[in-house]
Nucleic acid binder design. Structure first.
Length: 501
RNA sequence: CGGGGCGUGGCGCAGACUGGCUAGCGCGCUUGACUGGGGGUCAAGAGGUCGCAGGUUCAAAUCCUGUCGCCCCGACCA
């Protein structure tokens, strides 16, 4: 057996390592449809955890869920010029509504549609069309709606979880009476994402507005959270857009204010997707496979009964069931501790490694030897695969919540230390070019650079050959005004530059 | 769309240049035995229209033509 469960290792071939982790953890696999993945039960269970937590946060900030159609009439999409320009190149289009069997046994599309339908790449336009009908008075505002949905973007180069042709996400769409209120909403939701990323995914993020060239098509302002992956590249993990009145004007989303004057609404939209699963993998996993932060782990604890005979098996299983009952009374992150007993009749070593590769935070091995000693053998996924600790039976359940908390915190601290160690403050073009040229040659030195740059084409022109982009202008830890290293223009603070996924 | 590569049991590959007996190998799978705090050992099995279509030939995984699909690099990318 190789020294690590995943081959190649991160250092050897990072992109291939990523694919192998996805495979070994049984998160997803390639489907017969180009660019589209099948999300397998373990991957979907992680998504359900994320959904559950986020959905609670959306409700707590006053939002309601609804559902809008998958298909968007082309005419509907046409109403915001920049938006069309941004998405037209990557839309799947439905032109027919029937199949006929040809003499040679092939199915031929017939029944051409009067107006083609676009499979939604995002739903601003179809939702806006409905809001235009629903909103008449200032009393109808704000409208605060979220939908959980799938969307399709015909990307050139798909990558499992990170950029798939079809993906799952949530999209919030809100309409407000004032600019201030809409901006406040935009910021509130990027904060929700940042909190979720750091608290639940244990993934430190940099939060801030994007430069004009990186904005969502049709937005006045786009805020993102940016995380650093273990190869030093940035991953945009969530976005919140202040759409101004652009969509409202395009689609006639109007209301009468209390003075009886007709005004256009101010709208926002915000979303996170199954890309977050990719983000978690690339933030925490190691050369033995997936490492899951306990808050989003489908199971916190897996019990592994070890027995040689049927008699031993029933004895050991009874002990597992008893401990599991005790464990259910414990809470972690305000929920009962989640556990399972893996009593499958497969080889012990295979079983252990499967759970390591799937990232279960705690493994508990119980054999007759343990029972005789009155202990269980506890292993943590954030420690080496062979490390284990004997914990007295009577103390086990009560200790689990604190250990889970320790793992959750430890993963966050480790990821933050990694990011900080690979973050530089740079103050000249030469230093920026040198930093990213080095990073390209040697990915163990790639990372983020905090640099004063203006939102200007000259900056983009300098960064393009380095394949580097301005990720965002950090809102926190960034209080020193300066001058742009390219244009000499004054800037309010540094921007984060990086190569990105 | 440009450049390169690849389609052979579930997965990874060999065989192709120089056509020739029942198409091999590793992993995985099934069954049994020995095992048993570790992804073990031994034995016996199951599983393949060699991407698809046409052609050349006594004979095609192998040669020719066409076609479909996938991967990598680039262009592109909330």
């Amino acid at each position: 057996m190789p020294a690590t469960a995943i081959s190649p290792t991160r250092a050897e071939d990072y992109p291939e390592w990523y694919q192998q982790v996805v495979r070994a953890a049984e998160l997803a696999e390639q489907s017969p449809v180009r660019g589209c993945m099948v999300i397998k039960p373990h991957g979907y269970a992680i998504w359900e955890r994320m959904q559950g937590i986020l959905d609670g946060m959306f409700k707590a900030t006053g939002h309601q869920n609804a559902y809008f159609p998958l298909f968007i009439p082309v005419s509907c999409l046409e109403q915001e010029a920049k938006h069309v320009e941004g998405f037209a190149k990557e839309c799947a289009v439905v032109t027919h509504h029937r199949l006929e069997l040809s003499p040679d046994g092939k199915l031929i599309p017939t029944g051409k549609l009067e107006e083609p339908l676009v499979v939604r790449p995002t739903s601003e336009t179809i939702i806006g069309a409905m809001y235009a009908k629903w909103i008449q008075s200032w009393r109808d505002l704000p409208v605060l709606i979220n939908q959980w949905a799938n969307v399709v973007r015909w990307e050139m180069r798909p990558r499992v979880f990170l950029r798939t042709t079809e993906f799952l996400w949530q999209e919030g769409h809100t309409a407000h009476a004032t600019r201030e209120e809409a901006i406040e909403e935009t910021l509130r939701m990027i904060d929700v994402y940042a909190t979720f990323a750091e608290r639940d995914l244990a993934m430190p993020v940099v939060k801030g507005p994007k430069p004009s060239g990186e904005r969502f098509p049709g937005a006045v302002d786009t805020f993102s959270i940016e995380a650093m992956m273990q190869d030093g590249k940035a991953l945009q993990a969530g976005t919140s857009h202040f759409l101004g009145q652009n969509f409202a004007k395009g689609q006639g989303i109007k209301f009468q204010n209390s003075a009886g004057v007709e005004e256009f609404c101010w709208t926002t939209s915000w979303g996170v997707s199954t890309r977050l699963i990719g983000a978690v993998i690339m933030t925490h996993s190691d050369d033995d496979g997936l490492v899951l932060p306990p808050r989003i782990a489908p199971q916190h604890v897996v019990f592994l009964p070890i027995a040689r005979s049927d008699e031993e098996r029933s004895q050991v299983l009874d002990a597992c069931r008893m401990l599991e009952r005790e464990l259910r009374t414990q809470t972690f992150a305000e929920e009962p501790v989640r556990s399972m007993i893996d009593a499958r009749d497969i080889r012990g070593g295979d079983k252990v490694w499967q759970h390591i590769k799937q990232g279960v935070p705690l493994r508990v091995e119980i054999g007759t030897r343990d029972l005789a000693a009155g202990t269980v053998s506890l292993s943590r996924r954030d420690r080496g695969p062979k490390e284990r600790e004997a914990v007295p039976l009577g103390e086990f359940a009560a200790r689990v919540p604190a250990i889970l908390e320790d793992i959750q915190q430890g993963l966050f601290e480790k990821a933050r230390a990694f990011r900080d160690a690979r973050t530089e403050h740079l103050d000249s073009s030469a230093a920026v070019i040198d930093y990213f040229t080095t990073g390209e040659r040697d990915s163990s030195r790639a990372g983020f650079a905090w640099v004063p740059v203006a939102d200007d084409p000259a900056v983009t022109a300098m960064l393009d050959p380095l394949k580097v982009t301005v990720r965002c202008i950090p809102m926190e830890g960034n209080d020193a005004p300066g001058t742009c290293i390219v244009t000499g223009k004054p800037v309010t603070g540094r921007s984060v530059l990086a190569r990105a996924y």
